[in-house]
Design a protein around this nucleic acid. Structure first.
Length: 465
RNA sequence: GCCCGGGUGGCGGAGUGGCUCACGCGGUCGCCUGCAGAGCGACUUCAUGUGGGUUCGAAUCCCACCCCGGGCUCCA
């Protein structure tokens, strides 16, 4: 059974065959760090986190790089608002980004690469493009002449000649309206780097190709990003890199994630429905978020609503209940029927994930397994230890690909609350002079290493050892 | 205007020619149960935007149309 991946370039699912045998080079467009990350970022980065985890599970050695755009008009604007330096603002929100990713369990990235740390490589590329005649210098900067690159428009399936509608004011010094900036001359007070074409800063698209060329070379396996980046961003990357290196294609598999809506509308600040990851995390935990995201194909649009999040939580709870039901059965005999269900689930799960990372379908096979577990647990009181071990570890394995996990550890606050409760119940029993039951609680806790001491000011507890 | 997606039951959401169309959520009933919860079983189920066409057979292929969304040099 082969892994198949949907490639935006061809518009169909293709068998996944990495360029370098077992090694997979994967690059995903990271955030521009000028504000707190929102749920759209969460959706995209969770999707690629799952993809990277699954590829690793399948035995591939994945080198996963994400860029950090720490230099850009939006950052400069934000810095002015905050009265800080642009790079300070970028560092600050970069740290917040990592914090948000950690809260979502996004941890598959091997290298976060900052744009500002690859300026030399960008300048080198721009020089190369000038030499080869793909770029030209004007008084406002350096531009890429898209008419020089015949494949321009292939990824987005557009004819460049028909791209005549422009939302943004076109720089008058450009040869063609569709030409994009490789280097921008800095205005007064803007961050600036020296270059052979004058002081300035790089255009947006060049950072990604500078980074991938540095770490991957002229060709790599997977380039991911959200769907709205196909044009012009990814188109520009192809034009730059392939013109510069002469190697085509730049990327073997172009992968794009679908848009996240909030209550049916695309998130935007003007609509007031811009939800940050940290705000959403206050209401729903990591597992709920992950379950929400993997309940839809990564390529499909999805809608963030309270209803959908409640449903995601219910799904997580269902699996968790089943997991702990099996876990808490007595060790003994029985459970062979679980192995058959386990094999079916494994096969179905892997087959679904192999089919362009079809997480909703893969989930359906996990639910099939949990139903069998529940059926077993409702009829039996014990299970063979080895069988339990196999079922639970496989379940954990699959859930961890999706980024869902059930913690075992009881945190401090829960432990304290629990003991407070037991002490209170015991106090009630003592008041009713039901000392045998009260002593039973004290004895059982002692067995667990918790000592209760009744003092004149009430009962205190301590952990032995 | 051009390019690209999407429209499936009460809801979410799989499924690219054919075994009663998954799976989940919600709801109803029953079982279990001191109560609650969880679970089990049954039902909710004869859903594929509209109109044509191809076919023995279409959610799936073709044509036309309607609606929603994304992109068109800001964007995850």
């Amino acid at each position: 059974m082969a892994l198949r991946v949907f490639n935006t370039m061809s518009g169909r699912k293709e068998e996944f065959v990495p360029i370098h045998g077992n090694r997979v080079q994967m690059f995903v467009c990271g955030p521009t760090v000028y504000d707190y990350s929102h749920l759209g970022h969460a959706r995209t980065y969770v999707a690629y986190d799952v993809i990277a985890k699954y590829l690793r599970y399948r035995g591939y050695s994945v080198f996963y790089i994400m860029n950090i755009t720490d230099l850009d008009d939006k950052i400069i604007r934000r810095a002015r608002e905050l009265g800080k330096g642009p790079l300070d603002v970028a560092r600050e929100f970069e740290v917040e980004f990592y914090r948000d990713m950690a809260s979502l369990g996004v941890d598959a990235v091997n290298l976060y690469a900052r744009a500002t740390e690859h300026i030399d490589e960008m300048i080198e590329q721009i020089e190369g493009l000038l030499e080869k005649g793909y770029a030209y210098v004007t008084e406002t900067g350096v531009y890429y002449d898209v008419t020089k690159f015949p494949r321009y428009g292939r990824l987005s399936h557009q004819n460049p000649k028909e791209l005549v509608v422009h939302r943004i004011e076109v720089d008058p010094t450009k040869r063609n309206p569709g030409d994009f900036a490789l280097w921008k001359r800095s205005k007064e007070g803007e961050p600036s780097w020296d270059s052979p074409f004058g002081p300035g800063r790089p255009g947006w698209h060049i950072e990604d190709t500078a980074i991938t060329l540095t770490y991957f070379g002229p060709q790599y396996d997977i380039h991911g990003g959200a769907i709205e980046l196909i044009f012009p961003h990814h188109e520009a990357e192809i034009a730059q890199a392939e013109a510069y290196t002469g190697v085509s294609p730049l990327v073997k598999y172009w992968v794009h994630t679908g848009i996240l809506y909030v209550n049916g509308e695309k998130m935007s600040k003007s609509l007031g429905n811009f939800i940050t990851i940290r705000d959403s995390m206050k209401r729903y935990d990591k597992n709920t978020h992950r379950m929400f995201f993997v309940s839809t194909l990564y390529r499909s649009p999805m809608d963030y609503t309270d209803e959908a999040m409640r449903e995601a939580k219910a799904k997580v709870d269902g699996i968790k209940n089943s997991y702990f039901a099996l876990k808490s059965l007595r060790a003994g005999s029985g459970g062979r029927e679980l192995l058959a269900a386990l094999d079916r689930a494994r096969e179905g799960f892997l087959e679904s994930m192999d089919d362009d990372f079809n997480t909703p379908k893969a989930l359906s096979h996990l639910f099939g397994l949990t139903r069998e577990i529940n059926r077993y647990c409702s009829k039996h009181e014990e299970v063979e230890e080895g069988i339990r071990e196999r079922v639970l570890s496989t379940l954990e394995e699959f859930l961890s690909i999706l980024g869902i996990e059930f913690g075992e550890r009881v945190d401090e606050r829960l432990l304290e609350g629990l003991l407070r409760l037991l002490v209170d119940v015991r106090e009630g029993l003592r008041r009713e002079r039901r000392y045998e039951e009260a002593d039973e609680i004290r004895r059982r806790l002692k067995e667990l290493g918790i000592v209760l001491e009744d003092t004149s000011r009430g009962t205190v507890w301590k952990v032995e050892g």
